[in-house]
Design a protein around this nucleic acid. Structure first.
Length: 537
RNA sequence: GGGCCCGUAGCUCAACUGGAUAGAGCGUCUGGCUUCGAACCAGCAGGUUAGGGGUUCAAGUCCCCUCGGGCCCUCCA
């Protein structure tokens, strides 16, 4: 990663206070350089040394470096760098060699991360809000894996509790109605069409209506099938499905709460058991076991986290809608009480999606059966465009999803702009009747790639690993989409301005070498987003 | 009433966590296919970063106030 390289290089040249924070960043366009640091400014502040003197010292020590060239001072106290052709060429070589595996960074080697996401109550098909969560989790997993992490994608199924009771009641009523009984459908019941379908299925399979518990089991299974199919077709695969009921049945809930009680962080009051979360930042203490003896959702969730911790992960990631933000302090408090380092827990909060059609806000209620399913969106907009749309915003941004707009814009969707850049790269090789291979690139001469557009492409390729690194650090996939759009733009510009398949054989091969690297990076980037990279469109 | 998040071009969003002259796509307008695919390129226009104050070499980014939008304040999940 180029920024890290430069940072280490500078740190090795000059004595720095150990905790000094300085930036390595991409400077604005007008600076005409590739990288910049604010080191002189910040170092001057702590040491009192003159800014210009610091800069001169760093600049003189970097002369002759194989990493950077054209090193300049810039007011009010930056140093600007250009990356050497040698370093740019080195990256092209790495890309070509590693191909599908690029970038082969193993910073996460021997580390395990568990991502718990979607985990929607199994009361109906997934909608666009769940899809946003699915995309954030799935894409982050892919990036973690790229960096060598072992990932586990887990879906926590809330298969007990009030919602499940109402759900099975809803199915039962629909079954009886279908059987000709004249009964009123309960006001608070689930009214979606899938309820009627499940009810119909049950009626056709059973002579007599099964018991409520049996109905619940059948309904849960059917709905989980729907959810699993939706996710699979959306390109999101879970490794593990864990059921709340099992945590109870295996006694994990009871054991965990018992342990906390022994520690003294769980206590009895008003006939219920409380967890003392107020002590570490929560508004108040929370009930984990009700007066009637049943554990709360929170009580079971503590057990779930205890179970996750026991399975031995270096990092736990939870992805929740912001409607759960009030829940964060109590679960973090619980995690601390369980003896797990809270710094290894990341709770990503994403803003809910508001759905509209032609600017008219649509209510999204699973209960009322009024919602657009993910399935419908995939069908109308397509998986690639939907995934792109959901990847391209930061999780904390409010997201307005207008169906008509999305449909209308889909032929103009930026995702096609990126994919088209990829097909153009493939098209050149088709036209040249060549397959990319080390053999055809043996006569490459990178120093022939001296057009500004070529340098621009090489530079952007070099920044790809840093882009992925930002995604990991910020826990968001959206940097990739911004990056790919930029890279695709550079490719299109180059394609329009220069001919790759010219008469000069060495130049041709060298340009093909560059085009091939662009092709690999675009394809690998799209792959991390779960988006296809077609060779023809 | 208390708390969290958001407000950036006509629209949808970026801006590398405090850096330099705030950038893309879409839309509008003007040009460009006899040449590796025009699902493209070049150019024009579009901004007091909701508004006001503060912190400092430097603020879209941090602090305070106001306005507007979303969400949460269950022995629900």
């Amino acid at each position: 990663m180029i920024k890290q390289e430069l940072r280490e290089k500078i740190s090795g040249l000059i004595e720095l206070p150990p905790s000094l924070q300085f930036t390595i960043e991409q400077p604005p366009k007008h600076s005409q350089s590739d990288l910049a640091t604010n080191l002189p400014i910040v170092l001057s502040r702590t040491t009192g040394k003159e800014i210009k003197k610091i800069a001169d010292e760093v600049i003189s020590k970097l002369q002759g470096s194989q990493l950077v060239e054209k090193i300049d001072f810039a007011a009010p106290g930056f140093i600007n760098f250009n990356i050497s052709l040698q370093r740019l060429a080195q990256e092209l070589k790495t890309v070509t060699a590693e191909d599908n595996a690029y970038p082969g960074i193993d910073s996460g080697k021997n580390k395990k991360v568990l991502l718990d996401f979607v985990s929607a109550n199994p009361t109906g098909p997934l909608h666009i809000g769940h899809a946003r969560c699915a995309i954030i989790g799935d894409t982050l997993s892919r990036i973690f894996r790229q960096f060598g992490w072992e990932t586990l994608q887990e879906y926590y199924v809330n298969d007990i509790g009030t919602q499940m009771d109402i759900l099975s009641e809803s199915v039962e009523f629909r079954s009886r109605q279908l059987n000709g009984e004249k009964i009123d459908f309960p006001e608070n019941a689930y009214k979606g069409e899938y309820i009627t379908e499940i009810a119909g299925d049950i009626n056709s399979k059973y002579e007599n209506l099964p018991q409520r518990e049996e109905i619940k089991k059948i309904t849960l299974e059917k709905i989980l099938d729907i959810i699993k199919n939706d996710l699979t077709d959306f390109g999101v695969n879970f490794d593990s499905w864990i059921y709340e009921s099992e945590l109870h049945n295996k006694g994990i809930v009871e054991k965990t709460i018992g342990l906390l009680k022994k520690q003294g962080v769980v206590y009895e009051k008003d006939g219920a058991l409380w967890f003392g979360s107020a002590e570490s930042g929560d508004e108040k203490d929370r009930v984990v076991k009700r007066k009637d003896g049943r554990y709360t959702y929170f009580g079971a969730d503590i057990a779930y986290h205890s179970d996750k911790i026991a399975r031995g992960f270096d990092k736990l990631i939870n992805i929740w809608g912001t409607d759960h933000h009030g829940y964060v302090p109590r679960i973090m408090s619980a995690i601390k009480s369980l003896g797990y380092d809270e710094n290894n827990v990341k709770i990503i909060l994403y803003q809910l999606v508001s759905l509209s059609r032609n600017g008219v806000r649509l209510k999204m209620s699973t209960r009322a059966g009024e919602f657009i399913t993910l399935r419908e969106v995939m069908k109308e907009i397509g998986v690639d465009a939907t995934r792109y749309f959901l990847s391209t915003r930061t999780p904390e941004s409010h997201l307005e999803f207008d169906l008509e707009l999305a449909k209308k814009q889909s032929p103009e969707n930026p995702v096609y702009y990126i994919q088209y850049a990829h097909t153009r790269c493939c098209g050149i090789f088709r036209e040249a009747k060549l397959e990319p291979s080390e053999k055809i690139f043996s006569g490459v001469n990178v120093s022939l790639l001296k057009e500004p557009a070529e340098r621009d492409l090489m530079k952007k390729i070099l920044f790809y690993p840093d882009t992925l690194n930002s995604c990991i650090n910020d826990y968001t996939p959206h940097h990739i989409t911004t990056y790919l759009l930029d890279l695709a733009g550079s490719l299109h510009k180059y394609y329009d301005g220069y001919r790759v398949l010219g008469n000069d054989e060495v130049l041709k091969i060298s340009r093909l070498y560059l085009i091939n690297a662009v092709r690999i990076v675009i394809r690998n980037g799209l792959s991390l987003l779960g988006i296809s990279a077609p060779s023809r469109m």
